[in-house]
Design a protein around this nucleic acid. Sequence first.
DNA 1: TATTAGCACTTAGAAAAAGATAGTGCTAAC
DNA 2: GTTAGCACTATCTTTTTCTAAGTGCTAATA
Lengths: 328, 328
Amino acid sequence: MLTDRQCKVLKLIVEKYIKDPVPVGSKTISKTLKCSSATVRNEMSALEEAGLLEKTHTSSGRVPSEDGYRYYVDHLMEPKKMTGEDMLKLQTVFHNQQLALSDVIVKSLQVISDMTNYTTVVLGSTSHENLLKQIEVVPIDEGSMIVIVITDRGHVEHKNIRLQDVSLEEVKKTVNLINNLIVGTPIDEVSAKLEYEVKPIIGKYVKQHEQLYNAFYHVFSDFTNQEVNVVGKNKFLTQPEFSNIEKIQSVFSKLDNPELLHKIEEDDDNNIKVYIGSESKIDDDVTVIKTRFKSGNQEGTLAIIGPKRMEYDRVVSMLEYMKENIER
Amino acid sequence: MLTDRQCKVLKLIVEKYIKDPVPVGSKTISKTLKCSSATVRNEMSALEEAGLLEKTHTSSGRVPSEDGYRYYVDHLMEPKKMTGEDMLKLQTVFHNQQLALSDVIVKSLQVISDMTNYTTVVLGSTSHENLLKQIEVVPIDEGSMIVIVITDRGHVEHKNIRLQDVSLEEVKKTVNLINNLIVGTPIDEVSAKLEYEVKPIIGKYVKQHEQLYNAFYHVFSDFTNQEVNVVGKNKFLTQPEFSNIEKIQSVFSKLDNPELLHKIEEDDDNNIKVYIGSESKIDDDVTVIKTRFKSGNQEGTLAIIGPKRMEYDRVVSMLEYMKENIER
DNA sequence: TATTAGCACTTAGAAAAAGATAGTGCTAAC
DNA sequence: GTTAGCACTATCTTTTTCTAAGTGCTAATA
């Protein structure tokens, strides 16, 4: 258990380091705290002993360790009220009556990314949670048409398909069949259902059923598993701890990987959660702060991704604010 | 006018430098050419005089200047036959009968980006060239619906809109009106036509016409001006001349700007064109190689973007190959 | 007259040396 | 328990030294 003063020292070091990423020395802290640098040094080495601080070399100042950030977030951080300016910028987005929820979310995350210089992410619902609502087919020219798939949650995807010597009528038959038989099925189960329920029927009634079946099968099996929207990826380029190319390469490849981002959602917690460094699964220098949201039939996850040295208090209150606003 | 030997020297220097980005010295060249390093030095200083070579410092080897690359591309470069391996990889994409043309293009550009380590771009036709073919509306829940816009070239876009207290019937009336009155209009003129041709009519026959008009107006005015698809942006991170963060930041911000990329298309040339360094409008260290393609009602531009020190011969033949394959 | 050998000279870059700075840990006094 | 004082340490910056790769010029050569 930490003493009162140790908490203060840790808090000061974390906050100082977040402002300016250079190791913090005892002298700096002693100025704020009413005691000498020697005392602070003693406390610091106790905190290091406890694994909450680290040195970059024997005679350097201290830097928060992963556990140090953890302790800060769990016990020391005070929620920071949003500034009027920040609030105002978000309000104008939220109060735009024209915009649908999904657009509001993306727009406001853009605003947040610009305000904070961190990357933001929205994860929509998975193809398991989306039920097929309707499909539409629009012929474009000889032998090519567009299939549009709409889910009950308003997710829309379309795919251009090529069919040879298949009459529009045959296509319409198939579309009707699908719209009658498998509407309401979770998207990720549609392919299977197509095979077992639709294939036998179109096999009987529809010419060129082989081609048609294959085309629709691909439409559904290519359907995105999870809507992912990453906003402000380039913000990482402005963060000093990501100033080398290999690091950026590694982080970008992770951010481009929807499956990996999807893992952020894995825990089913509805509150705001903070994943620091290695906990983030993205990079040891990265922190992910996320929350789930639910509004009507829309649900998903919001996340803000930045350096481990993130303005935790500010980001947490922004996410809280976002969540509240979305949920009503 | 360059002598025969000067051409050889320039060609060797450019090709050497493309392989390995270090200034080329006279000794290296003299090994290939049947003459002494002193002779090569004389030729080199003539080429420098002509503005085709540059030195990084007084006693360094030579590096091609922008004009040097230009001369190489225009006069010295020999078309390089694609390797069997490269060709095979692209063939498998092109011979996939299932895929629609637009998918084939994106897939093959992905392949090219991976083979070459350069970034690739497809620019589709502009909203001016796309004619409205059809709109569809799908209600999602109370007060929110999805509008799907389809153009004659098979471009599809959708937008979630919010309407308060508007019955589905009124919406359908409007949709029918639009589908009857302004189908066939270039997308970028639809907004105007909505105002002059549809607004007066729905004003009379449709309740809540104000809201409906606004919603549809936004759907069309938000329609993307130009389909842009950038593949393999991260490849820039692997190029040695882009190893510093500011450079990457600048290039990425350009690649994220559809209007700027659109400028690649500005000249109306159907052949393969090479824009070197400052000509590229993106960055002085960047080269853009592009060509237009046309196939049925689909047309657009393909581009490969990489460092100025690009494998010109290889890229040009790949683009030629792509263009040919797309056009039949 | 074009080519080449030879040599003095230049510069970047690597390696080594010297200082300067900001911090620590420990001891002994308060 | 706190603090002043001091020896010690590592990094960073600057300076110096050395080396390697290249040039340009001159004079000899074919």
